[in-house]
Design a protein around this nucleic acid. Structure first.
Lengths: 205, 205
DNA sequence: GGCAGGACTATCCTTTAGGATAGCTCACCT
DNA sequence: AGGTGAGCTATCCTAAAGGATAGTCCTGCC
């Protein structure tokens, strides 16, 4: 029978997922309460047809646990689960040859589909999560900056000089300098270029 | 029975895909040779359980055909196929509520999995295509820049001063200035900040 | 009214960026 | 050997950035 190893330190999550999968498919679910237990099981009973690893569990150490698990599962699919991790982690996991990235916010039915998909040897990623997430990440910075500062930051991102920005906003050049200084402080940037890059990375423009 | 509409102006592609899917699953495949024929079929025999639209076929007009098809299929899944389109198109298609994006370079077995996945109501995207593609898009710029220039550009993107970059690369500050100047010329940037932004937009770092 | 704070301006100064021009070395080519 | 070009350096100069300090105006708040 198809054997799936689920490793998660949250008892509730682990048990509900395993119960659901066992009910819905012809799967034998094996559980582990942390990464160390998962490692033991991989060595003793592996490889499994699919391994689901919680991203934040003890022993995972970021994605290094993923790589270890892939190796110990002899190339059979190993996927990452997470309730908190963001898009970046998901991308890194997939780049590190994870069989998939499964957010815990996903509906149970979709989880089942994802499992079936990964068992078929495909790489799974929740499209909505991967693309939509970029919108939500704007806020943390936007809220810290005044309207003027946003306008100046926009100028920086276009590569404009202080003088040009001043003309555009109908202000004096010195005022722009002041705003740039406060921007650098708020964004923890070392200069205008760095500030623009940070803004870009945060997806502000 | 599950009915799938495939619309593609390449006879060979259309026929091989439909033959393969008909053989592998309990699917009834209906074909159309362009978008207009697909529209007629949607109106006459729709909705279908799944619609596969070629991105470059006559009548598609980019992604506006996708939106029309989604509407005419009453919310049932509509996916985009393409042999040439890049990651950007894929993202836009998925954002426009496509059920999936299917590159024609995909193995037949994976196509089958994707079809099953989309029939289950999930949104499909080929992970490898979506992430790995970013490497290939570096070339247009990367090929224009020397190794040194790339190193300097990397420094710019970290917000470093010329002096700092010079120390890191064990060169003189003036040399960095020169590289920055040529970088600005090659990237058509107005200054270092602009150059860094362009590099970032092109996904170089 | 007085007071505090935010946004803008003014002045002064140092460092950095950016541009121009010239020379130097080394690999490569014919 | 000579020519060519890429990469690096040197010198000189102007513009821009960045930092500090102080002052003005306006607004909201006791």
């Amino acid at each position: 029978m198809t054997r799936i190893l689920i490793a998660d330190d949250h008892d509730l999550v682990r048990d509900t997922i395993s119960a659901f999968l066992e009910r819905e498919g012809p799967y034998q679910i094996i559980v582990a309460q942390d990464f160390y237990a998962a490692e033991d099981l991989l060595a003793k009973d592996g490889p499994f047809d699919l391994v689901l690893l919680d991203y934040g569990m003890p022993g995972m150490a970021g994605l290094s646990g993923l790589e270890k698990a892939i190796e110990k599962n002899h190339g059979y699919p190993v996927a990452i689960m997470s309730g908190t991790a963001d898009r970046t982690v998901a991308h890194e996991a997939l780049a590190a040859a994870a069989a998939g990235f499964v957010p815990k916010t996903m509906p149970a039915k979709s989880l089942l589909h994802a499992v079936q998909f990964m068992l078929a040897g495909e790489q799974y990623a929740p499209v909505q999560f991967m693309t939509q997430a970029s919108d939500a990440e704007q806020h943390p910075l936007t809220s810290k900056l005044s309207e003027r500062e946003m306008q100046v930051l926009d100028g920086l991102c276009k590569g404009m000089s202080n003088k040009e920005i001043a003309r555009e906003l109908d202000l004096q050049e010195v005022t722009i300098k002041l705003h740039v200084k406060t921007l650098c402080r708020k964004l923890e940037a070392r200069n205008r270029t760095h500030a623009a890059m940070i803004a870009k990375e945060e997806g502000l423009f």
